[in-house]
C-alpha cells in the first residue's frame, strides 16, 4: 500500500503536540482533538500514537505532566510545555519550514 493521505511523517506528531501545548496545558484527548480540528481533519492521527509520543516528550524533558481533575470531574493527565520544549518547538518549526519550503520549490520546478 502506498502512503495514505494524511499520514504523518515520523517525528511530526511530536512537533504538532509541542505546538498544541504551546497554547495551553491540556490532556491527551484534547491534544488529539486540537490537531485534528486545526488540520481540517486532513491529518489523520492514529490517536493512540499520541501517547508513546508524549512519553518521548516527557523523557526528553520538553513537557511535564500532572494529574488533575477535568471540568467534568474526571481524573486526567495534563501536559505542560517546558522552557526546553518551547526552544525545541522553535528549532523544529524552523527546520520544518526550511525543509518543506525546499521540497515545495523542487516540486514547483518540476511543474515548469
Amino acid at each position: 500500500m502506498a502512503s495514505r493521505e494524511g499520514e504523518l511523517v515520523p517525528g511530526t506528531l511530536e512537533m504538532l503536540a509541542l505546538k498544541t501545548l504551546s497554547l495551553e496545558t491540556m490532556h491527551g484527548y484534547a491534544i488529539a482533538q486540537h490537531i485534528q480540528r486545526l488540520s481540517g481533519d486532513v491529518l489523520r492521527v492514529e490517536e493512540g500514537s499520541l501517547y508513546p509520543a508524549l512519553q518521548r516528550l516527557l523523557a526528553k524533558g520538553w513537557v511535564t505532566a500532572e494529574w488533575k481533575a477535568t471540568p467534568t470531574k474526571r481524573r486526567a493527565r495534563y501536559y505542560r510545555l517546558t522552557a526546553a520544549g518551547r526552544k525545541q518547538l522553535d528549532v523544529e518549526q524552523e527546520s520544518f519550514t526550511r525543509t518543506s519550503g525546499a521540497i515545495a520549490r523542487v516540486l514547483r520546478a518540476k511543474e515548469v
Binding site: E46, E47, G48, S49, Y51, P52, Q55, R56, L58, A59
Partner: peptide, 17 residues
C-alpha cells in the same frame, strides 16, 4: 479503532521506560 492497537501503544511507550 481510532485509538489503535492498545498493546502496540503500550509497547511503544515502554520503549521510553
Amino acid at each position: 479503532k481510532r485509538l489503535g492497537n492498545a498493546a502496540s501503544i503500550r509497547e511503544r511507550s515502554r520503549d521510553c521506560w
